[in-house]
């Protein structure tokens, strides 16, 4: 039996959030945290969670697992709570809770929207497609893989304090993905939009984002690249 403690909050019936304890029979298997929650849901269907792909692709089941943000579906018990230690599950921190483990990601998506996450190119479209050399394409590695799970941004203190003004690690990783794309011609406008005291410069380089990204991406490095681009633009 595994002890699982889960954050519960239903704004319609609960005055305030509370932690609820469950016992889940894992049959001694090294399950993924999501499997444990599914088992738990069989006994208590009132628990609200978001999930879809169950293989680390859709990014919908980001949550705080024993103090660390991650995707429940790709986090094994042996990693999150080794040696039968209790499991403590909370919603991703810093954003409003809709119910139980489901958070309101509006601010997160607003920041994503701000960086214009699409290619901008004013030159006449070629007959077939805009080509990229393998080297140019390689620049996108480590950036395009982001699944917008929000584990990084909700682990970032700067994003907690100013989620309406600091783009956050996830959005900035994406910003760099378009800044460095050889097919995009809006580099100057993109950089001009980022050069205020909040959007990029609230990053203090603590790398809390890097530590939690389930895809092994490095937003801090991307932010450093953006800073260098802003520097060479101003110099």
């Amino acid at each position: 039996m595994l002890k699982v403690s889960v954050y519960r909050y239903n704004p319609e019936t609960d005055k305030e959030p509370y932690m609820k304890d469950y016992q889940v029979d894992t049959q001694g298997k090294d399950l993924m945290v999501l499997d444990v929650l599914e088992l738990l849901k069989e006994t208590d269907p009132s628990l609200a969670i978001r999930r879809s792909c169950r293989e680390g692709v859709c990014g919908s089941d980001g949550m705080n697992i024993n103090g660390k943000n991650g995707l429940a579906c790709v986090t094994p018990l042996s990693e999150a709570a080794p040696n039968g230690a209790p499991l403590v599950i909370r919603p991703l921190p810093g954003l409003p809770v809709v119910r139980d483990l489901v958070i309101d990601m509006t601010l997160f998506y607003k920041q994503y929207e701000k960086i214009k996450p699409y290619l901008i190119n004013d030159t006449p479209a070629p007959a077939i497609e805009r080509l990229q050399s393998p080297e140019e394409r390689a620049h996108l590695d480590g950036l395009y893989e982001c699944i917008l799970c929000a584990c990084c941004s909700t682990a970032c203190p700067s994003f907690w304090w100013n989620p309406d003004r600091f783009i956050g690690p996830s959005g900035l990783l994406q910003a760099y993905r378009f800044l460095i794309d050889s097919r995009d011609t809006a580099t100057e406008e993109r950089l001009a939009d980022l050069d205020d005291p909040f959007s990029v410069f609230r990053c203090h380089g603590i790398q809390a984002c890097v530590a939690v990204c389930p895809k092994g991406l490095n937003p801090t490095k991307a932010i450093g690249h953006i800073r260098n681009m802003l520097l060479s633009r101003a110099a």
Binding site: R165, D196, S199
Partner: peptide
């Protein structure tokens, strides 16, 4: 809402530098 009127150099880059 926090505005940037009181920041030192008005631009994030100049403050940072």
């Amino acid at each position: 809402m926090v505005t940037q009127v009181t920041s030192f150099g008005r631009s994030g880059l100049s403050d940072w530098l």
